[in-house]
């Protein structure tokens, strides 16, 4: 396990990213889909200009768990695949790198979608 202050860093960076999202929700009435896309694009951009790695080494799950990390692994996957396979990597790289998460989201969505029924909000 990591020393405790590493978890504090994870907590603070992750919390801060979510707080920025909350500020956007309050000030611009932005919807869920737009928030997700926006933060994902930030991740793609950070990875594309090659500064995601150092941030990730510092903040770990603090930036990997937010959807920023999802965007970054898309971009990283594409870059690495292009370097290894050339043109084919443009098409395979991004999707291959997030295939695990994507398949899990769709698979579990299907599973729990068939098992459970949507209930009226109570609050």
């Amino acid at each position: 396990m990591l020393p405790w202050y590493e978890y504090l860093i994870v907590f603070c960076v992750g919390g801060l990213i979510c707080m920025i999202g909350q500020i956007l929700i309050i000030s611009t009435k932005i919807t869920t889909a737009r928030i997700l896309v926006l933060f994902e694009m930030i991740g793609v951009f950070l990875a594309a200009i090659d500064i995601y790695e150092p941030i990730s080494a510092f903040a770990k799950a603090g930036i990997n768990v937010p959807i920023v990390g999802f965007g970054a692994s898309l971009a990283k996957g594409a870059i690495n695949a292009v370097k290894a396979q050339g043109l084919l990597g443009v098409f395979t790289g991004g999707m291959a790198s997030v295939a695990g998460g994507l398949a899990a989201a769709i698979g579990f969505g299907f599973l729990f979608g068939s098992l459970f029924k949507a209930k009226t909000k109570k609050f």
Partner: peptide, 28 residues
Amino acid sequence: DKIAVYAGAGTIVPITGFSNSIASPAME
């Protein structure tokens, strides 16, 4: 959704929000 109404972006921005946005319309 009960946690999310309290947390707002705290549950949307992490990958949990992505997962929820797929599972909730599937159920609905």
